[in-house]
């Protein structure tokens, strides 16, 4: 039972055990997606590129109830973003789309009934000198108990990606699952395969092992 107190929790049990993940389920539709969620830039923006694809399961069937989130640096390489991804109309409370000026770097898009998704964005820049630019991609779905991370690289960075020591352990055909395919001027395709043949490479950001750490200073960050 929780102590009936409004004070900050005692720091004795550091590090705290993380709250476990649970599936997003099938019924997030009126809570998480928002109008214009995939439109990081307005239609007609001269530098806009279209990124789209399908999500497939281990039987090769499209996944009609996946939710994708993207996070990326802007074309100058800044991964600081701006608020306003879910910008609301103060009168109705409905999603009003981004303000058309600030680049938030965040997109959220559910798959259609045929497993297809699409976003409109700007090409990410290198987030540090000589870094290979990419869009970070997070996948949620019914049936997926813990979300999955991967990255989308544009094909013009294929050679730099192949030379990146972080991915040296991957054979070329696996590495290729992290590359979008250029379909037309400013249009790229990136399919996700959750399981099996041509399974997408998913990524992990390893956590520190459980170990005692100093108690936090109240209010410090």
């Amino acid at each position: 039972m929780t102590e009936p107190t409004r004070a900050a929790p005692a720091p004795a049990a550091m590090p705290l055990g993380p709250t476990p993940s649970q599936t997003v389920g099938p019924f997030y539709g009126y809570a998480l997606p928002f109008a214009g969620g995939g439109d990081l830039v307005p239609a007609g923006h001269p530098e806009a590129l279209t990124l789209h694809g399908y999500v497939f399961d281990g039987a090769g069937e499209p996944v009609p109830d996946a939710l994708l989130e993207f996070w990326q640096a802007d074309p100058a390489g800044s991964a600081t973003g701006a608020p306003g991804s879910l910008r609301r109309d103060p009168v109705t409370g409905e999603a009003a789309g981004r303000d058309g000026v600030r680049f938030t770097g965040f997109a959220r898009i559910p798959t259609d009934a045929d497993g297809h998704w699409m976003i409109r964005t700007l090409a990410p820049g290198p987030h540090r000198p000589a870094a290979v630019p990419y869009l970070a991609l997070l996948v949620f779905a019914r049936g997926l108990l813990h979300h999955l991370y991967t990255r989308v690289h544009l094909p013009e960075h294929a050679e730099a990606l192949a030379a990146d020591p972080a991915f040296a352990a991957l054979p070329p055909e696996r590495l290729g699952t992290l590359l979008a395919v250029r379909e037309a001027e400013r249009r790229y395709r990136f399919d996700l395969r959750l399981q099996g043949e041509k399974e997408t490479v998913f990524l992990d950001f390893p956590l520190e092992p459980h170990q005692p750490v100093a108690a936090p200073v109240p209010g410090a960050r």
């Binding site: 599936t23 399961d57 281990g58 039987a59 069937e61 996944v63 996070w71 990326q72 640096a73 991964a79 600081t80 973003g81 701006a82 608020p83 991804s85 938030t104 770097g105 965040f106 990410p124 987030h127 540090r128 870094a131 990419y134 970070a136 779905a141 019914r142 049936g143 997926l144 108990l145 999955l148 991370y149 972080a166 991915f167 352990a169 991957l170 959750l194 399981q195 099996g196 399974e199 997408t200 490479v201 998913f202 990524l203 992990d204 950001f205 390893p206």
Partner: peptide, 26 residues
């Protein structure tokens, strides 16, 4: 529902302290 929706390969660990994933949307 997890049967066909989990990857068979283990995720690739990345330890880049400057990864874009170590920042986030605001």
């Amino acid at each position: 529902s997890s049967a066909l929706r989990h990857p068979l390969a283990s995720p690739l660990p990345l330890r880049d302290p400057e990864a874009v994933e170590l920042t986030g949307p605001v």
